[in-house]
Each structure stands twice: as structure tokens, then as C-alpha cells.
Design a protein around this nucleic acid. Structure first.
Lengths: 158, 158
DNA sequence: CTGCGTATGTTATAATGTTACAACTGACAA
DNA sequence: TTGTCAGTTGTAACATTATAACATACGCAG
């Protein structure tokens, strides 16, 4: 990540306990919705939660096996697709990476602030898309999903 | 493009005269800025203007030669990078495609409405990013560039 | 148990983008 | 004119990201 400067000083990865709690909550919610939180899906979500920042798909693939064995690409891409569909994960198109959702339940449309220096990302309220909704209405478009990503420098990297 | 429905009824490609005019304007402006509008750059911009919608990099590569000969990838990627740097072209990250800028001179930060049905795109005012600026300021981020893309259906495809 | 929809395993391949280095070109000063 | 320097291009190979296709397994309702 840190392409522009080599320091690396944003919030470290979450505590293991936080990861476990989030995994449990996700599993509970999905089960309640009649979905299956399978081992592969759980593992991918665990890796993303533990990272606490965006991770490339092939990094997930490499880290997938507990024993260091990589996964096959479709395994991880399928899990990512499912998790994104369920609002647990977001894809960050501008850097081709994936991040666990931190936006609470309401997280259907998210926006991101991404530090090009240290790789930190912050998920901000979807309400930033209000202006976009207006423009869409004026143009007669019906919006189904949005990609809103701002690149720059975080407070620590300035 | 049209993955969800097979009709294809958005604004057709621009007239050849419009393309020529835009090419000439771009060349004039770049020359005035001391930049060189070389053959490869001109050709890529011409292809994008003529298409009137987002085009994949490898489609540009395939169409590059007047005689049907494809370009080498770096030729096109370099031209795209240059044109994007100069504000003449935008990359649409969510679909890995490129589109000629239609936003006038002011076009440094653009937002897009993209029809997932027919592939039409509309470039809308960057002012939709106002909410994002506020969120960035609150989080202490300094924004350098934004990716704002809304997917949905255009008026004709609804 | 059987059938059906969903999920996974596996192999291969497609699509997208980059690195590295040699060669050329134009501008400009000695 | 000639050197030379920055920017641009040519070319081959490679790296990364993502999907297709098809067989197999799993969970569960009937």
C-alpha cells in the first residue's frame, strides 16, 4: 500500500475478540435470513475483519488456508460476491480491493476515504450520495448501487 | 455492455464532425499548454469520442490500427494515462473502462451515471461531491481525487 | 430415499494492467 | 553542427485480477 511514503501508522488491526464478535454477529444475522454462513465465507470475512483495511483478492487467496495453503481463486471470489451481496463486505473498485463493512446494518450504499499513503480507509455515511441522487433524478436515472471513493491523505499522513 | 436487457437504444455515437471538432479543440488546448498531442494520443481520444460511451482498454487496443492491426497494450495505456492526467478522459473504475470527458474545461472531478442495461453513461457535475468533501473534512482527510459512479437504469431502459 | 437447489472443488483460461529496456525524436545550448 | 537531455515510443515478456465450464458434494423438502 504505502506507495508514496513508507510510514505505516494508521489504526492497527482490530483485537481478536472484536473479530470474533463481528463474525458471530454476521453468522447470526445470516442464519436468521435463511442464508448459509459456510466455512469459506466465514474464513474470507475473518481475514478481512482481521486486516482492518482493504485487502486484495489474491492476498485473501494466499492467506486462506490456516496452514499456509492458498485457496483456488473461485473459492474466494464466490465468498466475496456473497458477502458483498449481503452487505458484509465492500469492493473498492479504484484499488481493486475488498474491505469488511464497518457501517452498521444500514450499509447498503457506502462511501470511502482512502489514504494513498498508508492504506487506511474510512467508511463514511452514505448520505454523501445525496447530491448524486439529485443529479440522477434530474437525468431520469434510477440508481441501484453506487461507488464513491475519495483518495487522498489521512490526518496522520499529511 | 447490455447484460441485463438486449435493447440498445441510447444516444448513438456522435457525428464525425463533432469528433473532429473535439479533437481539434483538445489538440489546440494541449499545444497551448506545451504538451504534445502525438498520434497515439490523438487516436485513442478519437476512438473514445467516436464511441460516445465507455470503452474497455482492450477494445481500444483492438481498434487502434486504422487497418485492423491492434496496438500493443502499453501504447494505449500510456495514452490513456496522459489523457486522463490532462482531463480529457476519465477512467470508470467500477467497470474498468474509459470514456472521453464531456464536462467542459472544469472537469477535474467528475461523477457518472451508468446504465447497466444499455451502457449509456452521463457525466454529471462534480458538485455531487460536496457531501463527500464535508465528510472528508470531518475525518481530517485531504482529498486529491474522487471516484463517483452510480449504476442503475437510464430513462430509456426503465 | 429421491430429487432439487445451492454450494464447493478443480482445471483452465480470459481480461486487465505493468515492468523493463532499447531506440527514436525534438528542442535547445555549446 | 553537434551533443545531450527529457520525453515519447516500440517491443517482449510478465503480473495481476477475475471468470468459465463442468463435475461433485451437501442439505433438505417431499
Amino acid at each position: 500500500m504505502g506507495s508514496a511514503c513508507d510510514h505505516h501508522h494508521h489504526d492497527g488491526p482490530p483485537e481478536a475478540a472484536d473479530v470474533s464478535r463481528a463474525l458471530g454477529a454476521a453468522e447470526t444475522r445470516l442464519t436468521a435470513e435463511g442464508e448459509r454462513m459456510t466455512a469459506a465465507r466465514l474464513r474470507v470475512l475473518e481475514l478481512l475483519l482481521a486486516a482492518g483495511e482493504p485487502v486484495k483478492a489474491y492476498d485473501l487467496i494466499a492467506r486462506f488456508g490456516e496452514d499456509g495453503q492458498p485457496a483456488k481463486p473461485p473459492t474466494v471470489y464466490r465468498a466475496l460476491e456473497f458477502l458483498e451481496r449481503k452487505g458484509l463486505v465492500h469492493r473498492i473498485a479504484s484499488i481493486s480491493a475488498y474491505v469488511a463493512c464497518t457501517g452498521g446494518d444500514s450499509a447498503h450504499a457506502a462511501a470511502f476515504l482512502i489514504c494513498d499513503c498508508c492504506g487506511a480507509t474510512e467508511e463514511v455515511a452514505a448520505s454523501v450520495a445525496d447530491g448524486l441522487d439529485g443529479a440522477a433524478a434530474k437525468a431520469g436515472y434510477v440508481i441501484e448501487r453506487t461507488t464513491i471513493e475519495a483518495h487522498g491523505r489521512c490526518p496522520a499522513c499529511r
